[in-house]
Amino acid sequence: GATAVSEWTEYKTADGKTYYYNNRTLESTWEKPQELK
């Protein structure tokens, strides 16, 4: 079936920290989303 993983994109900030952005909800988070675990 369809999965929600594709909504999240992993980015890195200029200082090398990783964060996650959800293209559907426009939410961003420092925590790894449940969908990616």
Rank of each mutant, 00 (worst) to 15 (best):
G1R: 12
N23D: 07
K17E: 10
G16Y: 01
Y21L: 08
Q34Y: 09
Y20P: 01
E35T: 04
G16P: 00
T9H: 10
Y21C: 09
Y20R: 00
R24E: 09
Y21R: 07
E27Q: 09
P33V: 02
E31Q: 08
E27H: 03
K17A: 06
E35L: 04
R24D: 06
T13H: 04
T29N: 04
G1P: 14
V5F: 12
W8P: 00
L26T: 09
S28E: 11
T18E: 05
K32N: 06
G16L: 01
G16N: 03
W8R: 00
G16E: 03
K32F: 05
K37S: 15
E35Q: 07
P33E: 03
A2Y: 08
A2E: 13
G1Q: 12
Q34G: 11
Y20T: 00
D15K: 05
G1V: 13
V5P: 12
R24W: 08
S28W: 15
L26S: 11
E7R: 03
T3H: 13
T25W: 02
G16S: 02
Y20F: 06
S6G: 14
E27Y: 03
N22M: 00
E27M: 05
S6R: 08
E31S: 04
K32W: 04
W8F: 02
A2K: 13
T29I: 08
K32P: 09
L36R: 05
A4G: 13
K12I: 13
T18N: 05
R24L: 14
T29C: 07
S28F: 15
E27V: 06
T29Q: 12
L36P: 07
P33N: 03
Q34P: 15
E7L: 05
K37H: 14
T9N: 07
N23M: 11
T9D: 06
W8E: 00
L36M: 10
T13R: 03
D15Y: 06
K37V: 15
V5G: 14
P33D: 03
T18L: 09
K12M: 11
T3S: 11
Y21W: 08
K37D: 14
Y20E: 01
E27R: 04
A2W: 05
N22A: 00
A14R: 06
T25Y: 02
E7D: 13
Y21H: 07
T13M: 05
N23K: 12
P33I: 03
T25E: 01
T13K: 02
E7T: 06
P33Q: 02
A2N: 12
T9V: 15
K37T: 15
A14I: 11
N22E: 01
V5N: 12
K32T: 10
G16M: 02
N23L: 07
E35Y: 07
T13L: 04
N22T: 00
E7M: 05
E35I: 06
G16F: 01
Y20G: 00
T9A: 10
D15T: 08
E31Y: 06
R24A: 08
K17V: 09
T25G: 00
K12D: 03
G1D: 12
V5K: 15
E7K: 03
R24H: 09
T29H: 07
D15Q: 07
E27D: 04
Q34A: 14
Y21I: 12
L26G: 15
K17W: 05
T29D: 02
A14M: 08
S28P: 03
A4D: 12
Q34T: 11
K37A: 15
Y20Q: 00
W8M: 01
T25V: 01
E7Y: 06
A14W: 06
T13P: 01
T9F: 10
G16R: 01
T29L: 06
Y21F: 14
Y20I: 00
T29V: 12
Y21P: 02
K37M: 15
G16W: 01
T29E: 03
D15R: 04
E7S: 05
G16T: 00
D15C: 12
L36D: 08
E7G: 06
W8G: 00
Q34D: 15
A2P: 10
T18S: 10
S28H: 12
A2L: 13
P33T: 02
T9G: 07
E35R: 04
P33R: 01
W8Q: 00
E31V: 11
A4F: 08
S6C: 15
N22V: 00
P33S: 01
A4L: 12
N23Q: 11
S28Q: 11
K37W: 12
K17R: 15
T29R: 10
R24K: 13
A4Y: 05
Y21Q: 08
T25I: 02
E31H: 06
S6N: 12
K32L: 07
Y20V: 00
E31A: 05
T13D: 14
K17G: 05
T3Q: 14
R24Y: 12
G1N: 14
